[in-house]
Design a protein around this nucleic acid. Sequence first.
DNA 1: GGAACCTATGTCATATTCGACATATACTAG
DNA 2: CTAGTATATGTCGAATATGACATAGGTTCC
Lengths: 105, 105
Amino acid sequence: MDKKTKKKLEAAGWEVGDAQNFLELSDAEAAFIDMKLALAEDLRALRLERRLNQTQVARIVGSSQSRVAKMEAADPSVSIDLLIKSLLKLGAAREDVAGAVARQS
Amino acid sequence: MDKKTKKKLEAAGWEVGDAQNFLELSDAEAAFIDMKLALAEDLRALRLERRLNQTQVARIVGSSQSRVAKMEAADPSVSIDLLIKSLLKLGAAREDVAGAVARQS
DNA sequence: GGAACCTATGTCATATTCGACATATACTAG
DNA sequence: CTAGTATATGTCGAATATGACATAGGTTCC
């Protein structure tokens, strides 16, 4: 299994090691998870660009270091709402967010 | 107050008629609400394009008529996650979703 | 009139997401 | 080895979002 596929399954809340269920990812579900991964990648990229650590980002967006780590990992417990709000608070433009939404991760 | 401004405030969970707090909408908050409105508009547009009623959409996306109505109204109780999932299940492409995200509502 | 259809709004019990905290892991410098 | 710094992971109570249901409003047709 390649690295990206593994990431996607984990983002979907699956233990990788599970055998079956591969085909239960509908197109809509797959696209949704992929969007989340792209947004998470952008969040990390934006943070690094700004030379901030996760604790500083947490302060800016009103959250905690651990949640920022989970955002960047596209953890199943983080919503797209939270990712978008965080990106915007870090200064991303709507077009940037749209770029991630459209981009195949 | 124009119609769009009123809609935005309501989407943010405010009673229009409230006097103050006008300036507490940060840029990030305003952009977020606007995205939600754009997604909601697209959901309704897509439904009408497909000539479906809200009950049919509810069946397709796995929800209820009342929630679909709230989605289309960009009700404060609906998340962007739900809007995006619903759009995708109705057959929208990622680019379509990205279009709404970028579009000033 | 009222029956049939569609959409809007209010409420509720359950489910999911949240910030926070503790703790683990990893890397660097002294 | 230890201390300092950064990121990852697990858990929790509180907050928010969810589908479902009831019901209200609105339109069209007879």
